[in-house]
Write a protein that binds this DNA or RNA. Structure first.
Lengths: 211, 211
DNA sequence: CGTGAACTTCACCAGGCGATGAAGAAAAGA
DNA sequence: TCTTTTCTTCATCGCCTGGTGAAGTTCACG
């Protein structure tokens, strides 16, 4: 039934493109082009709004090749979505520095990370997954695991949960304002300016006096 | 298949507008049911993810009726979207009270308005319009007109734009956290708690000392 | 060379989509 | 009553969708 070679990780022996002893036929290149194109289109138009044929056309490939490599449209999406779990390096430093100045660090990391990642706002995940429920659950888990969990570990006050949640509100608000809706002057502000503006605010949410 | 002979329950709309003498056959009811169903489905699945047939089925109506009343799918969407410009009453009071305590008022109005409106987050507009670009521009304009513009009129400091933008970040963050992603404990918090937590924060963004 | 696997193309299907047009059925107006 | 307007249904169109199967085509390897 399915003859699709889905587990591509088995043959990850390519150091450089077309490096397979002289030359290789081209299969991996096509696969990669489909993958890149699909990721771009999924982000732009969402899952339902992206057709396999459109991906194939944009990648300069026959539509059947998409099914040859990924089996189904869901398989293609799964292959694209899997590659999105690869930016833990800088995040650790944010929380490693302790509670002092964590506000500035968290804002700086968020903004710089997303800024340089070629228009890849986290919130785009929301329009990314097959169903909205799925994508929302995905993003909620991510936030809880990577941000809330670690922040909560730094606090031991009784209202830690609410304080952390207020930080989440800041992060979500900045992300939506700057990257999704592009509201001025947030969208055009420099990273430094956002850090000075919101760093103190986040710090206040964590360690300041709350009503 | 079935044509349920209309249960005449609570048709509160026409008082006398199209005063077609006493009762009317039923057309307006069908129209309204299609409209309500469509609005719900558009919000849940977006424009592309909602089919005319699904709307018709959920409304208990023949698909052709949708086209009879609204012409095209875009026409249906337009009819649904147009009704979203009908909540200016409470908003005016927020800004009429002056700068003092505007933070609490704006949070309270936002939360209570959205809470009681049967799961109708503003940010849902993002997944609402035919294209994402359209919906984003729509929402951006709305925010600028209804919130930023009025807030800016209350301030005359040189950094008014940034202060207002920071308020927007709060509002967007709360909306996304509470209604879209449903992050705890924001999602389950009472309106009063959110007002006390974020009211002061918003007020600080507007009138407090900024770095 | 030949064989066979990896890759590519093409023809095609079943189904759902938005949309149309004509034929009913029920109330309004005469 | 008959006629007209309004609403409802049904059959159908053309298009595009995700997906399949079978032919090529190109290369590695014996």
């Amino acid at each position: 039934m399915k003859k699709s070679p889905l587990d591509s990780s088995a043959m990850t022996e390519h150091g450089s493109p077309s490096g397979r002893r002289g030359r290789w036929r081209s299969g991996e290149q096509s696969r990669q082009r489909i993958l890149d194109t699909a990721r771009s289109l999924f982000r732009q138009h969402g899952y339902g709004g992206t057709t396999v044929r459109a991906v194939a056309a944009a990648a300069g490939v026959d539509p059947a090749m998409v099914f040859y490599f990924f089996g189904t449209k869901q398989g293609l999406f799964a292959a694209v979505a899997d590659m999105s779990a690869d930016f833990p390096p800088a995040v650790d430093e944010v929380f490693a520095g302790g509670l002092d100045g964590v506000g500035e660090r968290i804002i700086r990391t968020l903004v710089e990370l997303v800024d340089k990642s070629d228009r890849a706002p986290l919130a785009t995940i929301t329009r990314f997954a097959p169903t909205h429920d799925q994508s929302e659950a995905l993003l909620r888990e991510f936030i809880d695991r990577e941000i809330s969990g670690r922040l909560r570990a730094l606090l031991d006050t009784p209202d830690a949960a609410m304080r952390v949640a207020m930080v989440n509100v800041q992060l979500l608000g900045i992300t939506v304002a700057r990257y999704v809706l592009r509201i001025e002057p947030i969208a055009s502000a420099s990273a430094d300016e956002l850090v000075t503006r919101f760093g103190a605010l986040v710090q206040h949410c964590l360690t300041g006096e709350l009503p």
